[in-house]
Amino acid sequence: MFRAFRFIVDLFSQRHGIVAFVFFLVLGLLMRQAPVPIRESIVTTAISTLYFPAQRIVSAVGHYKSIALENEQLKEENARLRQETYHAREGLQELARLHTLVRFDDKWDYPIVTSRVVGHNPGRFLTTMVINRGTEHGVHENMPVFSMNGLVGKVSKATLNHSRVQLLVDPNLKLSVMDRKTRVVGFLESMDGVRLTAMVPTHAGIRAGDTLITSGLGGIFPKGIPVGTVKDIRKSDLDVMRQMDVEPFQDFTTLEEVFVMEKEPDWIVKELLDE
């Protein structure tokens, strides 16, 4: 076979390759002049025999490239789906919170306005926050503000679209609270803008761990909203009263959304406030 190959090469190399040139030129011209079906047959035969291995390699490379491309697309899709899953989880959490709210809302006959916290006071102590609901949405001053965990504060200033909420830790806010177990009434305030302190009569028998709720006596907050738990009890300057630290149910630094109860202050409080 090699001898035959050598013979052909020698033959074609004669006369400075003119034989080869004429041969290939004639071959090329024959292909040019051939009818279309014969040309198609030449191409089909060549592709299916001579160039088949190359075809396989090229298609394998193409396949590899398409896999790489598909991999990129899948990565992008994965990232997008992760985002969607994240949003879906957020939505589910929000739904759970709203379900809790619905149950919460059953206790009182006041409509609820859901709002998002959009800002808070810039000082070191968090005493005020801003929500994205105002008079346009039915929010007015002195309306109670709470979260699904418990009481947050009250609306101190309402504008058209935004309202300022005075938090329980604001030293200017004082409210009447009640021990859920003993039903003894005291009052709650913050002296330093950080901790909540409750003052309760000495004979009440309140213990650490007891739950405090709103008493409904102040005229602003309705009765029964959870406020916090008693942490530490100590003697006050007055012998008849006990001073106790209260841990609020709601951590004010992590608030994202709050609910405003559309409850106007009782008429007596309104009169006092107007005066």
Binding site: F24, L25, L27, G28, L29, L30, M31, R32, A34, V36, R39, E40, I42, V43, A46, I47, Y51
Partner: peptide, 15 residues
């Protein structure tokens, strides 16, 4: 190159 070119031009590259 002809094999992968339009069949009407078969032989053009070869020549």
């Amino acid at each position: 190159q002809d094999v992968y070119a339009p069949v009407e031009w078969l032989g053009a590259h070869s020549i």
